[in-house]
Every structure is written in structure tokens, then in C-alpha cells.
Simulated assay, not measured.
Amino acid sequence: MKRIIVVDDDKETREIITFVLSRNGFEVITAADGRQLAALLEVERPDLIILDVMMPGLDGYQIFNRLRHDPVLHQIPVIIMTAHAEHIYERISVDLGAADHITKPFHPLELVEKVKGLFRMLSCEASWDEVK
């Protein structure tokens, strides 16, 4: 079972994402901010992190930057979420190296499809690496 950490300061958003992804066969762990994520990453190695941008303290981009520079955690794919609907934010996420981007509000099935698609893509890349 794929393990996902969802980081969002909004409790309702965490609950919705947890419900939807759990119903689709994923194990979901949540964190309300970067500090809780750091504590979780001391004991958990998720297959994916879904990371909100706008949070108090460290924002999602700052957290993402720290993840990318960590020698152990840099390989974990991250989907960045934001309520900013402007296209530039999606571009920023992709340019920073995020696996994907999703704009809030989102349809729960859209999130599920993005997550499943990402895991399919990663599985194909792993299979291709074995062939090489």
C-alpha cells in the first residue's frame, strides 16, 4: 500500500484528502505544518507528499526547497497544492521540481487521478531503469 503524507494547515482539507485517498487504497498520514512534517519524516518514509503552499510559518515552497536539498528526502515526489489559480503558480511548482501541481478547490476525483497517474508513471520509470 502506498503511503502519502498530506501537509495542510486546514483541518477540513486534510480530512477530505484523507477520506478520498484512503477510500482509493492509499495509506494517508497528515501534518498541519512544516514542523509536524519534519517530525513525521524522522520516522516515516512516504511514497508521496502532498504539500499546501499557503501555511503559517514555513510556506510550502520553503518546505519543498528543504526537502529537495536533503540527501535522504530529495527523492520523495511532491504534489504542490495552492489556492492561487493563476497559471504562474503551476509553472513555479513544475520549475522547482514538483511531481505535479493541483489548484484548490479541486474535485476529489481529480486528486485521486493525479496521484494514481503519478504512481503509474513512477512505476514505469522504475521498470525502465531495470531494463537499462
Rank of each mutant, 00 (worst) to 15 (best):
K2L: 00
K2Y: 07
I4H: 09
I4Y: 07
I4T: 02
I4M: 10
I5P: 04
I5V: 13
V7D: 14
D8F: 03
D9V: 00
D9I: 00
E12T: 13
E12P: 01
T13Q: 12
T13M: 14
T13H: 12
R14F: 01
I16M: 11
I17W: 03
F19R: 15
F19M: 15
V20K: 11
L21N: 02
L21V: 01
S22M: 15
S22A: 15
R23V: 01
N24H: 13
G25R: 02
G25H: 10
F26L: 07
F26S: 01
F26M: 12
E27F: 01
E27R: 07
A31C: 11
A32M: 15
Q36A: 15
Q36S: 11
L37Y: 02
L37W: 02
A38Y: 11
L41D: 07
L41Q: 03
E42T: 08
V43R: 13
V43S: 14
E44L: 10
E44G: 08
I49S: 06
I50Q: 01
I50F: 02
L51R: 06
M54N: 11
M55G: 13
G57V: 14
G57T: 12
L58K: 14
D59W: 12
G60Q: 05
Y61S: 00
Y61D: 00
Q62T: 09
I63V: 15
F64A: 06
N65R: 15
R68N: 02
R68M: 10
R68V: 00
H69I: 00
V72M: 14
H74L: 03
Q75Y: 12
Q75H: 14
P77M: 11
T82I: 03
A83W: 09
H84Y: 14
A85H: 07
E86D: 15
E86P: 06
H87D: 09
H87P: 04
E90D: 03
R91M: 06
I92T: 12
V94W: 06
D95P: 00
D95L: 05
D95T: 03
D95N: 06
L96M: 09
L96K: 10
L96V: 03
G97M: 04
G97N: 07
G97F: 02
A98M: 04
A98K: 08
A98H: 05
D100V: 00
D100C: 04
H101T: 03
H101D: 00
T103N: 04
P105R: 06
F106G: 08
H107R: 14
P108T: 07
P108V: 01
P108G: 04
L109V: 13
E110F: 03
V112Q: 07
E113Y: 13
K114I: 00
K114D: 05
K114A: 06
K114M: 04
V115E: 14
G117Y: 13
G117E: 09
L118D: 05
F119L: 06
L122V: 00
C124N: 15
E125Y: 12
A126N: 10
V131M: 10
V131C: 03
K132C: 09
